[in-house]
Nucleic acid binder design. Structure first.
Lengths: 130, 130
DNA sequence: TTGTTACTGCAACTTAGTTGTAATAAATTT
DNA sequence: AAATTTATTACAACTAAGTTGCAGTAACAA
């Protein structure tokens, strides 16, 4: 179910992911590209790009789905095991370049681990002098 | 916005949380209690119970919202900083009684940390002899 | 340049959750 | 115990995110 043809739509969509660590909400993409792409196309492409290991997705506390570029992922396996950070002030979300070890839980075999951190980003910390 | 009156509805709803560590999906509660409570009531009560520190909620990878009982929380602050575990085989979700330290991120002030672990639960591990 | 079929747009749909409002039932007062 | 107050509930209607089916379009191979 990956991407086979290099279409205009893909170029338009990938252009939005200029910054490698900043995540974009799926709904935000749908809004931004409304005049250029149908929302069905956007959702379908995002899903394919994720299958191909080009982007990865995650949810924040509100259930909003975010997408960001992958680094070092393949079709076979997503290697993005970094935590994500959401600023509670400005709402900005990005990928943190640290690795969180998967904790060992007795009686269970843990294979996937996801971490969402919330707090104040650099910019908002400076603003509030707090 | 907390709970003021001890109503029948609350009794019915809280009865579902018999097990202290097993989480229940909001949609599952809506389905189970359909004949007894209106879904609006269910969602509003869950939200109030969360405000009161009686239950806490979190989202899984599919965006499904789960609720589970709190231990040691108050109206002022949710103290449930444990990770949640979802079995990729049977779908069961529960609270793990371990504490994950909030990682220190340079240039950011992290105040909330959430972790979702996925893998095989004890029961499904035994089933699959794997 | 033609044929194949992946991809896209559109409309209609689904699902989770929310909002407004009138009726009901806890809890308090008399 | 009855009356009063108002938090709570049910109902219907709505919203927002995402999905599905399908006919038309556009990559790309031959």
């Amino acid at each position: 179910m990956g991407i086979i043809r290099k279409t205009q739509s893909i170029t338009i969509l990938l252009n939005e992911f200029a910054d490698d660590t900043v995540a974009i909400a799926a709904t935000e993409l749908a809004k931004r590209l409304k005049t250029q792409l149908n929302k069905t196309t956007i959702y379908r492409l995002l899903s394919k790009l994720e299958d191909d290991g080009i982007v990865h997705s995650f949810l924040d506390r509100n259930g909003t789905k975010w997408y960001a570029k992958c680094t070092g992922c393949t079709t076979a396996k997503h290697a993005d095991i970094h935590p994500h950070f959401q600023c509670t002030d400005c709402g900005k979300v990005d990928c943190l370049s640290i690795e969180i070890p998967i904790p060992n839980i007795p009686n269970r075999k843990v294979t996937i681990s996801q971490m969402l951190l919330q707090g104040k980003c650099e910019h908002c910390l400076a603003q509030s002098s707090d």
